[in-house]
């Protein structure tokens, strides 16, 4: 489903990713863990196609297609979803309007019919309940004045309604208290399915108590330095990252 080969990327001329290799199958959940500055967020932006993140070497094959030559909105249409570490505020743009615009753009890309206002509302309500999102939140401007927990729940809501094939969750646990973490974790878990894959990027192990990964990779200084099962996350939690940062250096 996703194959990353020797991926190198620079930001402002500085090399951040230094040769990443990663393979994921359908239905798999992989976790990428790593210390601050190891390139976790850069990897997520490169996969989503953000300007300013230049790939200098390597390739990313997604469902057999060259992901790197697609525009961000095409990647979204193809089923790539990025849950942002810092969701962006869109003043004056109501959450509902934004969701509808996104869902219909993606549906159109996939050759599905666009939903009218009534159908859309029905469709969204199914998901909002599960994530404890009120109608009031949907009326407010996207992420404006949202609490940390609300922002992250909003990301998961978008993920649920856009029905992605590959979801990249960038530090979705950051800034969440225990209850919010559980809601988000349950939300994500509910979306697991045999044809949906997830790449969970996190600094801490605690999110992985809620989203059990099939594989765990440790990213340090722009490279994957170790891979293993979920027990690797536990080990990391106990021993810390210091030996990996030292290794890489």
């Amino acid at each position: 489903m996703l194959k990353i080969n020797n991926l190198h990327a620079t930001v402002d001329g500085k090399e951040i990713l230094k040769g990443i290799d990663l393979a994921m199958g359908f239905g798999e959940v992989h976790a990428i863990m790593g210390p601050n500055g190891s390139g976790k967020s850069t990897l997520s932006y490169v996969l989503a196609g953000r300007d300013g993140y230049e790939v200098t070497k390597g390739e990313v094959l997604y469902k057999g297609k060259n992901l790197l030559e697609m525009k961000p909105e095409e990647r979204a249409g193809e089923g790539v979803f990025l849950a942002f570490q810092y969701p962006v505020e869109l003043p004056g743009v109501s959450s509902m309007n934004f969701l509808k615009a996104a869902v219909n753009a993606v549906r159109k890309y996939r050759g599905e019919n666009e939903l009218d206002a009534m159908d859309f509302l029905k469709f969204v309500r199914e998901t909002t309940k599960m994530l404890n999102i009120t109608d009031d939140m949907l009326k407010r401007a996207v992420n404006v004045g949202f609490s940390g927990g609300e922002k992250k729940r909003n990301e998961i809501l978008q993920m649920a309604v856009l029905k992605p094939i590959l979801s990249v969750l960038d530090e979705t646990d950051s800034g969440l208290d225990v209850d919010a973490l559980r809601i988000v974790g349950d939300g994500v878990t509910a979306l697991r399915s045999p044809h949906r894959s997830m790449l969970v990027i996190t600094h801490y192990q605690r999110l992985l108590d809620h989203i059990i990964p099939d594989e765990v990779h440790i990213l340090a200084d722009g490279k994957i330095v170790r891979s293993g099962g979920k027990e690797l996350a536990v080990e990391l939690e106990e021993k810390g990252y210091s030996r990996y940062t030292a290794d890489a250096a």
Partner: peptide, 26 residues
């Protein structure tokens, strides 16, 4: 980052601008 956020959700650039500007004028 506003533009990228919209595009990551599948909304093409011109539409994203219209959306953001409409929000700005709301």
């Amino acid at each position: 980052d506003q533009l990228f956020y919209c595009r990551q959700r599948g909304i093409a650039e011109e539409e994203a601008i219209a959306l953001i500007v409409n929000g700005f004028c709301r």
